[in-house]
Structures are given as C-alpha cells and as structure tokens.
Design a protein around this nucleic acid. Sequence first.
DNA 1: CTTGACCCTGACGCAACGTCATCCTTTATG
DNA 2: CATAAAGGATGACGTTGCGTCAGGGTCAAG
Lengths: 255, 255
Amino acid sequence: MNYQTSALAKLAGVSQRTIRYYENEGLLIAKRDPQNQYRYFDESQVDRLQQILFYRQLDLPLAQIKKIMLASNYEIVATLQQQQRALKEQRAHLDRLLASIDATIRHQKGELDMTDLEKFQAFKEEQLNQNETKFGAEIREKYGEATVKKANENWLGRNQSDFQKLQALEADLFKQLQLVAENHDLYSEAAQQAFQDHRSWLELAWGDAHAYSPEAHRGIADMYVADPRFTKYYDDRGGLGTATLLRDIINLYAK
Amino acid sequence: MNYQTSALAKLAGVSQRTIRYYENEGLLIAKRDPQNQYRYFDESQVDRLQQILFYRQLDLPLAQIKKIMLASNYEIVATLQQQQRALKEQRAHLDRLLASIDATIRHQKGELDMTDLEKFQAFKEEQLNQNETKFGAEIREKYGEATVKKANENWLGRNQSDFQKLQALEADLFKQLQLVAENHDLYSEAAQQAFQDHRSWLELAWGDAHAYSPEAHRGIADMYVADPRFTKYYDDRGGLGTATLLRDIINLYAK
DNA sequence: CTTGACCCTGACGCAACGTCATCCTTTATG
DNA sequence: CATAAAGGATGACGTTGCGTCAGGGTCAAG
C-alpha cells in the first residue's frame, strides 16, 4: 500500500508542505514516479513519520531527530535527557517570568504598591540568571567565568531570610546615605556606616562564592554611576545624586 | 548627554545590532548627524530601552511592545494578562512534555514497561490540547469550534477516577471484541456489549460538552479504520482487524 | 598622512514550515 | 474525445530577532 503526499499528510494530520519538507531533509524516503515526479510512501514511512512527530512534540529540532533515528538506544536516552534538562530550564525560566509579570500587573493595577526594589530585584535575578548584565560582564572579565557562575547560583539559591537581611541592609544603607547627603560629610559616622552596610550587603549577596576585595567593591561603585539602571535605582530611592554619593563613599573607604 | 550606538549598547548590555534594529523598527528614536549618519540617543531613549528590554524578557514580541508603550495603563494590563495566560499555557505544555519524555526515557531504559496505552494516552492528550488531530478536525467541522473546545477542556480537566473508568471501559471493550472475533457474530451479546462499552467510553470522554449522537459515533468508527494511528492502536491491543471489527459493530448499532 | 578604532548600510543565515504563484498530470464530466 | 476541475510538483518569499560578515566612509592620534 502506497500513500501519495496528501494521503500521508491527512493520515498524520500535518500539511503537505511538512511532508515534502521532511522528505527534502531526508527524514522521510519516497519512491518517485519517473514520469511525473509524484511521491509514493510505503507503510514503513508512516511509522517513521509517527516517530518524527513524536519527537517533534518534545521540541527536538529536526536535525537531532534525524540523528536519533539512526542512533542506538543509549544515545537516544542521552539526547532525551539533555532535552529534559533543557525543558526543565525553560520551565524554571517561565516561572520567573510569571512571577515578574504578576508583580507588574498588580503594580499597574495599583493593587500593590510594588516598590522599585521588587521590580529591580526581579530584573536582577533574571539578568543574573542569564549572565547578561553589564555588572556580571565586568566582574566576569576581572574574576573569570567560574567565580561569577558560582555567585549567580548562590544568588538564586538564596533563601528567604538572607533575602530579608539584604533588604534590611539596603534600608539602613539608604538611611545613612540620607544623613550623609544632609551633612555633606564623607568622613562622618553615617558615611562609614553606609560603607559598612554596602560592604555587608555585597558579601552577603556574593555569599562564599567570592571573597570580598576592595578593588571589586570600587569597580561596582563605579558602575553605579556608569550604568543608568543602577543609577536610577539608587537615585529613585535616595534622591538625586545618591548613586554618585555612594560611589564616592566606597571609593574613599574601600582600600 | 548623548549616547552613540555602541555606548548605549554597552549600557544596556545588548549588541549594537540590537540597537540599530530597534531604531529601524521605530522602537527607539535617534537623532542623526546629517554629515555622517551617526546615531545619537538621549537619556529618554535609555529609559525606553530599559522598558523594551523589560517587556522582551517577558517574551512579548516587539510589535506588541511597540503598541504597549503608547498604550494606556489599562491596555498594558490587558496585554500583560494575555501574555500571562500564554506563558501559563506554555508551562502546562512543558509539564506534559516532561511527563511524556520521562516515560519515554524510562521505556528506553527498560526500567518501565510502558504500555502503548500510556504512550497513546500522552499522544492523545497532546493532540487534543493542540486541537490538531484529524479526529478533532473532523468533529470540529461537523459540530463547530466551540463544542470541540469544550470537549478538549473537559478531557484535559479529567480527574484520576474518570481516567481509570475510561481505562476499565477500554479493557472490557477489548475483552468483548475478542469474543466477537472468535464467534464471528455481530449480533451476539458480546458485540452489543462492545458497542455499549464504546458508547459509554465516548460519553465519558466527551463529558457534558457534547451530547452523544449516533452520527458522530459512526464518524469516529470510520476514522478508526481510516486513521492508521487509531487502527494501529486497536489492532495492537486486540489483534489484526480489531479496528475494522469495532467500526462494523458501531455502524450496526449506532442508529 | 597613515593607522586604527568606529560608524554606517546592506545582505545572508537561522528553524520549520505557511502561503502563494506557476506549471504539469491525472481524473471526471458532458 | 475535448475540456475542466482536481491534485501533484517545484521554486521562492515571509516569518522573528537578531548574529555575522562584507564593503566603505569617518574621526582622533601619532
């Protein structure tokens, strides 16, 4: 029993284009009528197509499917496990996005007075996870890929209580910065306290993935001014000039 | 303060190509130096870019982002909610795929004697969910989109106990079909019981989304023979010719 | 004045088909 | 048997969001 293109397409519930495409890609094999070039598929191809569609369901790229169908059982399992990891990662990604989108919606609705912190926090997590932020890029250059990776993992694995400590430290940091802004004294108690707050924040944020160093601390301080995302964050919460102030304080004490 | 392309790109941690692309798409606005066509972006564009990247994170297509940034608060929320639904759907999809892939891996490893039923079940769920199966297509033609949609939701929302009832009905169905195959009597008790089993299965599978009708029942019976996926399924479990037998029985009694 | 370092504008590539447009057979109908 | 409708085939462009050259003009420094 031979199927023509449209018959096979109907059987499998896909388009003719798909059938032809698969044949062109070498995933399906058709006999050709030498007169009119019509394609004819036998039952074995029906089975093949079913297999292809099964793997396609799992979002495996056609190239992989092609290999898989020639591969040993062992290799198939390896491929599937890899795909499994990829899908799990995707799902985790979606979870983060959903959390973020949810916060944003509630913010827009005004139901929740979402602080910029939350937004920024979500944004940071996402950026850290994707290893894409300039922050990460710069640190990475200086301290190597592995260190940053550990730091990221550490950040994401942070638990609720650490998270709250971080927020508390930030709160005090802004309080101190407020004082410094009022008395204009970089050598005041408040300034020193601000520096300590920020240093503690950093150490906690980095966890044991990366030991504190004054150089790195100053590098980050510079970014607070150079990167508008961070500048905006600090200026929004502490008033105009806060990012610059913080940078100056850090540069003064981080030695 | 004006940023050139590369400066803005670095700030945001994206490529120059991305910046130019966004400008071409009208998402960012640049002043041009009339002499050399150099782009210059002011701070407002930095903010815009941040917003764009935020929404891009949520996997919103650029076209949507373009609209959103001109839209009212209300419309933004609507768009975000839509996106939220889409993402949730994606997550559910991933969950199903992961279940399927897990079963397949264990099957390949031989750890689990996955019955074809499980595979088929997963396949069916997936197909139903995607509204793509020929089964669905044909029913849809006959009874309209809304009915099928309800049926699908119903199927997917099915609980464990219903699921087990369905399997029990199928088991009995195959037992009766076995008997009919042996005595070759379409008018036997077994044949009538098989018909009743299948009818009950159908009604349970459709839930209250769609009232039973003999025409639909016969349509489905025909598909059991026409569609090799279904044919294979029945023949594998009940022996060669089972699909045809079942179709004949249904055509006889469904009036 | 030359040399990099930058900027610009095309234009192709990617993944997996959907969707024409154009042309050739096969099949059905009058 | 002529013609029309139906179905098959082969390009080729469109889609999405950029990555990645290639080719060419521009600007600051030595």
